[in-house]
Design a protein around this nucleic acid. Structure first.
Lengths: 324, 324
DNA sequence: CACCGCCATGCAAGCGTTTGCAGGCTGGGG
DNA sequence: CCCCAGCCTGCAAACGCTTGCATGGCGGTG
């Protein structure tokens, strides 16, 4: 255990009292500029690192930044976690995370548990209702990822535009009847993506295949429904679902894209690696995480409002012209 | 902000002093059993939650449990993270994590950053050298995942047995010449898996295809080398690599498993969903995470030694009889 | 019956920081 | 030249907990 240098050491080195040192480092306007500089230099020289536990004890606010997400095993959220964590670490802070297993009750208990340790959190939990979220936001700084709640800052991919890009692509290939395999009804991003469906190019009919659990199992069901519905292409709520669709189609011997085209959403890393590779709307997951942290970092409560990051359709082998 | 109940409240309710209350809750043998019970009851009734910041301030040890892993976007490590986090949360603690991007230097700086916040950590970083690890272990309780260092507790899947199972399976199918697409030379688990190669069934020749970066890019190279080497099956260091192999084979129009069988390692969730689905050695990632935390939880420094969890080959479509 | 010793408890210090409040110094105006 | 105002700075308390040390009371033994 090295002899950690404390604020007292810095103060002594700078020839001021501990309180002045504290204020100087906090950037309080009340300290004279010369003094502040002196203290800052001393702090750097001594390699001073504030003791976060002590700070938390008096302020009552944890310094860590928390990430609450529904499922870290979902590569999309893993991407968000990665970006978030990189930014947090660059700031010298630590990232704590909690996986809620897609369960709203767990989400609530997790939030309670996070309260003492982190006063800033990134919520990427699509299931929690608005009231619960606002309750949390009253005690901590919150940035939402992939959902919206008014009065709170949020970061998301441009869902509607992603859907639009996908539909335009399919329409251009000649598809006229496309199925949408939706995500859970409670999911904000599913709602957002559905809004994009309204902007379908003229002449393109979109068939709602229903709401599915965002895992491979859901995709299996969706595949069968798609075939029954007589569509020539399927747009899936996310890549996990699309993977299930592809798997089921392979099992049933349905050729992709010859008989049915498939488009995913999120563009998780494996999408490129499948055979056939999956056409998917790339959402910058890492960027979402980084941006969320960014909003949490600067100054006071971040301004409410939705930051929409651009998404980009990645065309691959799973889409092609429809069979005549 | 609710009026948090403090240790002083508990002490008052139980009619003892703060110090006694502290000792009672800590389970110190020195307090009379009756007193301890009284204090405990009072704590439960009042819903007392210790202020971790205060505790950390005096003990100098963080209460969180940290997970250091090379890449959270790798589904295998995501699984470890998930299991680890579940167990940690069940204990009422928080999990902090850091992604080192497979970079040994980042690994070191991350460890330094973790020191003040967590006195117990799970290290799933295959790259760090033994000395660096032991240095960390001197200041904190450490459990390793998927690697070994003597004097330290470790949890890992049964790598050698997994390789053995895979080879036996391939041999049974009729393969006589199998390529091994290895992971990075610095990876402990690659070394462990290579040891399993020695136990190849008699009559089965194993060709070392080399060391590859454990991503899809590595798999592409490995696929071409496998074809050049004239093997009838490839065993990949992990599923990511196997995915790359499958993708490249599909591109080159090589039929799987008819012309070449492919076996992965880890059994990440997508393995089931591929077409063809990937035969893979299932390593219980979540279980590894949970077990590691378990070791960290009970009592004192966990006993050194390697806990080996069983693995199980999942036979799927990517393996079949070799072409004659 | 008296003394000693030990066990259970309480007292108080201290962990490193923030922050309300008091006080000193400087400079300008009367 | 003196006084006052204002700007900086320092003092000290407080955050909730752990822990070394002192103390009180009890039982056992001579």
């Amino acid at each position: 255990m090295l002899p950690e240098t404390t604020l007292a050491d810095v103060a002594r080195a700078a020839g001021v009292s501990v309180s002045t040192a504290s204020r100087a480092l906090a950037g309080a306007a009340v300290v004279a500029t010369a003094t502040r500089e002196r203290v800052r230099r001393a702090a750097v020289e001594l390699g001073y690192e504030p003791n976060l536990a002590a700070r938390q004890l008096v302020t009552g606010q944890g310094q860590a930044i928390a990430l609450v997400l529904p499922d870290i095993a979902n590569p999309f959220y893993a991407g968000v976690a990665k970006g978030m964590q990189q930014r947090v670490r660059a700031e010298g802070l630590t990232a704590v995370f909690a996986d809620t297993d897609e369960d709203p009750r767990t989400e609530r208990s997790v939030l309670a548990q996070m309260a003492p340790v982190a006063a800033r959190l990134v919520l990427a939990s699509p299931r929690l209702d608005d009231d619960a979220i606002r309750e949390v936001a009253a005690r901590a700084r919150v940035v939402l990822v992939n959902r919206e709640a008014d009065g709170l800052p949020a970061v998301t991919g441009d869902n509607a535009d992603g859907v639009r890009q996908a539909l335009v692509h399919l329409h251009a290939l000649g598809h006229r009847r496309v199925g949408y395999a939706g995500g859970p009804a409670t999911s904000w991003s599913d709602a957002a993506r559905r809004r994009g469906l309204a902007a379908a190019p003229p002449g393109l009919e979109v068939v709602d295949l229903g709401a599915f659990r965002p895992g491979a199992g859901g995709g299996v069901q969706a595949a069968d429904l798609a075939l029954a519905a007589g569509v020539t292409a399927v747009l899936a709520f996310n890549d996990q679902l699309a993977l299930g669709v592809l798997g089921r189609l392979a099992d049933r011997g349905v050729a992709v894209p010859d008989r049915l085209s498939v488009v995913g959403f999120d563009d998780i890393p494996v999408a490129r690696l499948l055979a056939p590779s999956l056409t998917s709307v790339a959402v910058p997951a890492g960027e979402l995480g980084r941006t969320a942290v960014e909003l949490l970092l600067d100054g006071e409560r971040p301004e409410p409002g939705l930051r929409t990051l651009p998404v980009e359709l990645q065309v691959r082998r799973s889409t092609g012209e429809p069979a005549r």
